[in-house]
Nucleic acid binder design. Sequence first.
DNA 1: TCATTAAATTGTT
DNA 2: AACAATTTAATGA
Length: 235
Amino acid sequence: MTQDASLFQRRRPLTPAELAVIPWFKLLSLEERERAAADLKVTDANPGDTLCRTGRPVTYWFGVIDGLLKMSTDNSEGQTMTFTGIPPGGWFGEGTALKREAYRYNIQALRKSVVAGLHVDTFHWLLDHSISFNRFVMNQLNERLGQFIAAREIDRMTNPNIRVARSLAALFNPVLYPGLGTVLRITQQELAYLVGLSRQRVNQALTTLCEHQSIAVEYGGLRVIDLQALRAGIF
DNA sequence: TCATTAAATTGTT
DNA sequence: AACAATTTAATGA
């Protein structure tokens, strides 16, 4: 297990290819890009690694370059509630970074991932200097709010097929994760951790979704054919 | 480049 | 939870 502080001791600068995955980077002016690029650091996270934990102070605004993360909280009974998975291109923690509060959730790597971090000071500097960046963050906050509400609904649903479908639909959110195309690399085991079901049941659900022509299951991942159907969830 | 082997992932019980 | 079948990744000639 690695905590956020030690995690970023192994940091290194980003490669141009990694910068290309960051959706807000191309919105910046040349000057702003330089400043952001100078501060951006990436690190590798192994499965199970904790990127941030509830109650810890915010030092970075995080984004996924490659891999897959899980956002969850522990309720009063000690049970873990998963809000969402975060695929490449996803950035999180802006709400707490804005207010310089402590994290309200845990972020864990579901598999070996590459995670970028922007220091909160630079995050605020960008907010002060770039209208486009402000718009991006605002959009992000708004969309995330919708996700949290949806996550509650998903958690109350009993039908596993619909749970899997809606969770997948959330993962393919084009606003939050713009870089993501129609294919997502995620194993059925990872999806099981995300949705909170057994791998067998996820496998069964995926087969059903396949029969409904909503997705296509591939080795080590899947392809979305009908995102609307996943959202609507008539299975 | 190809064949062989190991590891990862899937499908099923 | 366990198993076999399938796919990918790694290795070395």
